[in-house]
Design a protein around this nucleic acid. Structure first.
Lengths: 108, 108, 108, 108
DNA sequence: ACTGAAGGCTGCCCGC
DNA sequence: GCGGGCAGCCTTCAGT
């Protein structure tokens, strides 16, 4: 298997090497960004902010964004289930009102 | 190592066996519950409900509960940061108003 | 659509609520079990066992059990293909004897 | 506390907002990179490579790199302990020769 | 069968 | 120094 074997093997090897390099390059960039984020947190801490709270805020905002997206999904799903057209303003308003969105997780 | 070796080895082996059995027992129970959940979804589907929508509802309610818990955490953290007592109703109300909770993820 | 709308809607809503509650109840139980499992691992760690290794054991045994089940399935399939009855104790014993691989995870 | 409160509060709020925005911006960039990585894996898969194996390779190389770095650190520490200069090419070559373990992750 | 999310596990980092 | 908390990765499972 020395002497390069089949050409296809040679090709596969080059291809693999290229993929590995691309991925490792990207992971490096990703690490750079992660370090930057860490630095910003450190800087915030240096300005007197509580890092834990700051992280909580970031997390919360992300959650909110996700929840909004999910909400849209639910509305659309209900629309489809009800056989209504989802893109009319009146239909959306009606759907809003009917959602079982009242009290999440109350004690039983 | 036949003939039991040291007594401590024997003991460790028994202990290990006990742990493994406890864990496997619990995992079995867990699987049973998972199957039950699956059954309930199937039953709901049989009653004409859209499973996807139902899952979305469950997920949404869980998210809401988590968000509420997280919110509490943020409030408490801020309370501590401000050196206030978190368990007074007035303090909580004040904290509510000051949170940077305005518009999550607007376009820049 | 306030004022309860049709009775069928009211009924559907109650049914939906019931399903949601059943599922959430089960998910809670599931979480309890998961926490118990976590506790057992913690206890094992407290007794000096390496948690990672313990997890590996559990995983391995599960794989073995699955493999054994697949093995059984194959045996039965062959049996059926040969027009023999696989589900009698004697049939099973006979099948076992003819194959090189013993059965892991047997009762001790 | 509406009406902006103290100016210091106003300032803190602006500062906080700035930190939040910087972090969210960076997290967005990070997500972009992560998606790129995902895409590369997908492309590799499309070229017939086994993604799981590819990930294993990446992981392995990262470990090797870390091990090499640790190795370097130890060598330098020894060098310093011996009062020798570790950062000259000759010093490095000498150090390499004295140790049984070669260096993985060399350029090919 | 593949894709995408959800949960669990592992390795890292901070605080004690 | 380590033990707990946390973020990232992997695996598994639901959905298409």
């Amino acid at each position: 298997m020395t002497e390069v074997g089949h050409n296809s093997t040679r090709f596969a090897k080059d291809q693999l090497k290229a993929f590995v390099e691309r991925i490792e390059r990207l992971e490096e960039e990703k690490k750079t960004i992660s370090d930057d984020i860490r630095d910003v947190y450190a800087e915030a801490k240096g300005s007197g902010f509580d890092v834990k709270a700051l992280r909580a805020i970031i997390r919360r905002r992300k959650q909110d964004a996700q929840a909004a997206a999910e909400h849209e999904l639910i509305v659309e799903t209900y629309m489809n289930a009800l056989g209504m057209l989802a893109d009319t303003p009146l239909g959306r308003a009606a759907a809003e009102r009917d959602l079982p969105n009242d009290n999440p997780r109350q004690a039983d």
